[in-house]
């Protein structure tokens, strides 16, 4: 069970088999849906349809309910994340200081909207509500790194740094 490093793994039979094993303790227990989804998501960092079907089948929960939970909680995702995960804070402070300009720039340069991953799998972009670093706004994080007072020029530098890694 490796968290983090397997985030851009491809989804295949191996992953499904691993999930199936992880779900064993929750078999027939609809009440354990959220825990089961966590375990399943840890395998490849996201929950494609096949993984959710497996959870539905194992726990005996309707698929509509499984997807209901996955689409309700922002910590679950149905799409694979990029090698580098960009988060743009859109809390009030960051927002008034220009977070939307940064989002526009990301959309232009990477051709993806928040929630999506670039075709080459290099980047994924998401928005977060507030990172608690309001004094530094607008704030952008890439993986574990935090960048404050980001403007369009600085974002350019950040992108070119991570597109090579």
């Amino acid at each position: 069970m490796s968290h983090g490093c397997s985030c851009h793994a491809q989804f295949g039979r191996e992953q499904l088999e691993e999930i199936e094993k992880l779900l064993e303790p929750y078999s027939g227990q609809p009440g354990s849906l959220i825990q089961a989804l966590h375990k399943a998501q840890n395998v490849a960092g996201y929950l494609p349809r096949e993984a959710q079907v497996l959870v539905a089948e194992k726990l005996n929960v309707p698929l509509t309910r499984v997807y209901g939970v996955v689409s309700f909680y922002s910590l679950f995702t149905t799409k694979p994340k990029g090698r580098h995960k960009i988060h743009v804070c859109t809390g009030t402070a960051c927002y008034v200081r220009g977070a939307s300009r940064l989002l526009n720039q990301l959309e232009d340069q990477l051709q993806i909207k928040p929630g999506d991953t670039t075709k080459d799998g290099q980047f994924s972009v998401d928005v977060v509500r507030c990172l608690g670093a309001c004094g530094l706004g607008p704030v952008v994080t890439v993986d574990e790194d935090v960048y404050g007072r980001v403007n369009n020029g600085k974002l350019d530098d950040i992108l070119s740094k991570y597109s090579r890694e």
């Binding site: 309707p62 698929l63 509509t64 309910r65 209901g68 309700f72």
Partner: peptide, 19 residues
Amino acid sequence: VSAIAPQERGFNTIVAPAF
């Protein structure tokens, strides 16, 4: 049958099939 249930959240909540 459970063909439909609430999906997404907040203002985007929609009663619909899975996915």
